[in-house]
């Protein structure tokens, strides 16, 4: 539960960063989809499941030390590459060609990328069918 709350606060902070950068569409999507749908789903599942599960007590797997070392190495390597990149400065809304406000973005999005938009609906339908299939196969194996 603490992980979920920490993740929600992290996503809300990221949404704040997007809003400050002027990418309002992404900020709105972040709050609506991630915090509003995905994390609420997650919190429901956490409430459904048993908290006295052994994996809540013995939290870490055998990979604890190599995992941390590998993560630190990855963060260090990526950080060095970011430092080498130089530091161009983003100025939100400073006369750049595309506008990330909701209305211009939507118009541009549906004009240029309408095929992708339709394909995402196909993907979502496939996901829904797959979820239903998983649940039905589970019921069949139960009884």
């Amino acid at each position: 539960m603490r992980v979920a709350l920490a993740l929600i606060s992290c996503m809300l902070s990221l949404a704040g960063i997007y809003a400050m950068l002027g990418v309002h569409v992404v900020a709105v999507f972040q709050v609506l989809i991630y915090v509003g749908a995905v994390m609420v789903f997650m919190v429901y599942v956490i409430m459904l499941l048993d908290v006295r599960d052994p994996s809540f007590v013995r939290r870490y797997s055998r990979l604890l030390l190599p995992g941390i070392v590998l993560g630190a190495l990855l963060a260090g390597a990526l950080g060095i590459s970011a430092i080498r990149l130089g530091a161009p400065v983003i100025q939100p809304g400073a006369g750049a060609a595309p506008s990330y406000l909701v209305q211009p973005f939507s118009v541009e999005f549906l004009r240029e990328y309408w095929l992708h938009f339709e394909l995402t609906s196909v993907l979502l339908v496939a996901a829904v069918v797959a979820a239903i299939a998983i649940i039905r196969s589970g019921r069949r194996s139960d009884g």
Binding site: C10, I17, M20, L21, S55, R58, R59, Y60, S61, L63, L64, P66, G67, I68, L70, G71, A72, L74, A75, L78, G79, A82, I83, L85, G86, A87, P88, V89, I90, P92
Partner: peptide, 25 residues
């Protein structure tokens, strides 16, 4: 905003997520 800072934040978040996937049970 600084591109380096944003990219660094993104890298740190990614590494934290990777460590979490590897380490937790």
């Amino acid at each position: 905003a600084d591109t380096q800072l944003l990219l660094g934040l993104s890298f740190v978040l990614f590494a934290l997520g990777l460590v979490g996937v590897m380490v937790r049970r």
